[in-house]
Structures are given as C-alpha cells and as structure tokens.
Design a protein around this nucleic acid. Structure first.
Lengths: 130, 130, 130, 130
DNA sequence: GTGGTCTAGACCACA
DNA sequence: GTGGTCTAGACCACG
C-alpha cells in the first residue's frame, strides 16, 4: 500500500507521512476512511511499530488524521490548511534549494516547469478549483 | 557574504553548499574566482573550520569548485552537469513531496506555479538560453 | 579484523576503505553482511570514531556499503561498478607511476608481471568468470 | 616538455619526479644529459621554483640525477637500482590497492593484465634484457 | 599562507 | 543501540 525505502536518507516516519498525505490527495484515502492500525501497518511494512506511531502522531498534529479512542485512526473529515507562516518560508527555502539542484543536474528552465506541472497533475492538484 | 542559520535543522555544511551554489548561479561568484579560505570563512561566519572544510569537499566532489594545493579554492572553470540518473529521481521525489506539502499549506495550483517561476527568475535560471 | 598502520603516510580512513573493499573482494565480507558499528570498530582499532565515520561515508558514496538508519551499516547487496571515465584515467596514471617505480627499484619485466598475477590471485580476481 | 596537472591531488613536485623518471626510461633523456635549470623549468611550467627544487632534490636523493656545482644538473651516468626492501613493500601495497580499485571500477582479470602489459611496453620496459 | 587529517568530546535524530 | 553533525584544538604537507 505504501512504499517505504529503508535505504533512503529521509527518515522512515517522514516517508510514511508523505505517502499517506499523497494517498489522501489522490483520493485513494477519502475523508472518514479508516487507516490501518499501527500493528497492522507495522507488519505489512516490516517496520518498527514505534516508527509507525511517530508518523501517525505527526499526521495528527497536522490535523490530517484523527484518532478515536478504541475505534482507530481516520482521515480527518474537514482538513483546513492552517496558514503557518513559518512552514511556508521553510517550504520556499526548500523549493529554492531544489531548483538550484535541478539546474546543477542540467535541467533547463522549460524542463523544470514541465516537471512541476506534470507532478501537480499526478498529485491531483488541479487548476481551477483547488 | 553567505547566510547561515545556526538554528535551522538542515546541517550547516549543507546550507553553505547551497549558498555557494546559489551565488555561482546568480553570478556573484564567477568561474575562476577564488573562494575565501577555510579559515577566513570560518572567522566570518563564526563556524568551525572543519564544517567549512566539509562544505568545500562536498562541492569539490560535485566538481563545482576545485582546489589548487597551497593556493586555495576556486570556482570550477567549466562545470558540466553530470547526468546522474539517481540524483534526478531523488530530486523528483523531493519536488513531489514539496508540492504535496504546498498543497497542505493551502497553496493553489496557480500560486505554486507562480512561486516556481518567481524563484527561477530570482535564481537567474532563464528561459531561452539556459 | 582490519589492519591499520598508524605510521603510514596514507590517511587512516583511506587505509580502512581499502581494507574493507579487499575483505569484500576476498569474500570475508559478503553482500548483506553487517559491518561493525562505528563505535565498535573505533574501540577495536583504537581509532577515533570520526575517522571510522569518514571511511564508512566514503564507502557509502561509492555504493560499496549502505546504511540503514538506526540499524547499522551493511555491505551492498548488488554493487555495480560505475563506469567512471575520470577515475579510470586516474587509475591508469597511478598504475603507470607504479610501474615506473618498480623499474627503478630494479624489477624486471617478468618479475612485474609475475607480481601482478600473484596479487590478482590473492585478491580473488579470477580469470574466467570475474 | 613535462606535463603537470595543477588540479591533480598528487603533489606537483612528485608529478615532476615521475615525469623525469619516465622521460629517462623512454630514452627522451639520456644518461649524461643536462636537465633544464630550476629557474628555466620554473618559468616554462609556471611553477614555484621551490617546487622544482624539491623535485630535483628528491631525484638526487634517489641517485637518478646528479648536480655538478656551477655546471648544472645531469642524468646520472650509471644508475643502479638500490634494493630498498621498505620501498618494495610499499610498492606492492600500492599495487595491491590499485588492483582492488581496478576491480571496483569494473575491470576484468584479462583487461587488467592487458593494461599492465600495454603500459610496460609504453614505458619501454622490455621483456628479455631489462 | 593554503587545505587535509586526526583526536576528543559532545549533542542529536532515528529505529 | 545506530549513524550524523558540530566544536575545539592540534599537526602536517604543500607551494
């Protein structure tokens, strides 16, 4: 269900956070859907339960998912993007760094823009509405 | 000359790598230019010389700069982007993650594209030639 | 396990890189095997952990080993020699220099070839398959 | 006359030592031939005179060249390889390392041997006599 | 003067 | 427990 690369330099728990957010974005996980339990996922992905736990906590902190005691974890019904200025500046900084990197890997202006639009499409981030 | 955020979670040596790459991109540092010596920068930025070292070595590994023994470190005269497939896939993955993040921070399709183009401009990555 | 000569003029971290590569070549270390932890080796060889670190990072850069966060460092499962033209020319240059040196130390044509074949055998670099 | 790569990681003075030894081996420089003066070479190669000096001193120490006061430096008339056991073991160690490296760069047993014989030929190290 | 290596000791994130 | 980063301070080879 979720792809985790143990060798990647980005922490496993963050990879999982990303994967889940992406699944929601693509509609694979719908608001209200139940997420697999920590133990379940732990077995499926052969990853330490503590790590799964950490991902879920992070997602809950971001209000992307909610935990109902004794019932499980669910995709939040009404996620509202919080206007977090700090996060935004970090994001821009990261984006900036990636663009620099892209250039040093030989990508041209057009190629970069093309890649961005392709990814936006893949991620179901649409033009008008969204 | 270079802005380092000691509090940031991204390692100092990586920040410096980024800053130098950016400076070259913007033309502030030209091919052939001498970089400040390790000790010099160390004093300017109040950062340990070893940390500066690490940045310089990383940049040299990437062929962005080169060192002439006993003379100092210089911006490479003819940097050629190496077509590193692996790095490219990592880059795409990172970009993808950032776009997901941008969405969750409430940015719309148009805003994202606008931000990208603005950054490309800032970074002197131009349309036709580059 | 690994022989390090503290007095040698070649950096300790490079010696260790060599030793590990050789151990893999000889089959003493198999793909997938766990390498001793940085701290462990540090104690065994009475060498500073940072120096061991540097060796491991160098080997990881060369894709000879890989690290799994929190789990340790392992011999890569499928090492593929990268066709690095630059490294090849450097290698040839070094080999050339060594051959010149051998001559000046009085070794004859036959002796040199004999030494090379003996070393290849020792290193488990075989004729047909390899 | 001699090729020096300022960017190479091997010290300039060592490169020069190598180049001169090679020239002698190939017969470009004959026993008794006069070497260019330190100043001359310094200008030709745009290298610090001290560095040239160091090369000459090293070659003299190895009895490859001789200095006649007031007359200049000359290729030794009767070079006899000294049987330096230490140097021999260092040489073997270096050769061993290079062979390991060759393998990790993807060279096969046959290719390595072929390269060695080709280099020996280039260096005028012949089969019977030498 | 330059960069390269090493040590000792510390702190941190991750699993 | 693992590796990753950083500092402080030292020594060295090179030009």
């Amino acid at each position: 269900m979720f792809k985790i690369d143990q060798r990647s330099s980005t922490p496993i728990y963050q990879q999982l956070v990303q994967e889940i957010k992406e699944a929601i974005l693509k509609g694979i996980l719908q608001p209200g859907d139940k997420l697999p339990s920590v133990r379940e996922l732990s077995v499926q992905l052969t990853i330490n339960p503590n790590t799964i736990q950490k991902s879920y906590q992070e997602l809950e902190r971001q209000k992307v998912i909610e935990t109902l005691r004794g019932k499980g974890t669910f995709v939040s019904l009404n996620y509202k993007p919080s206007v977090d200025k700090e996060k935004l500046t970090v994001l821009k900084e990261n984006l900036r760094n990636i663009l620099v990197e892209a250039h040093y890997l030989g990508m041209k202006h057009g190629e970069i823009l093309q890649l961005v639009t392709r990814l936006l499409e893949e991620l179901n981030i649409k033009e008008g509405q969204n």
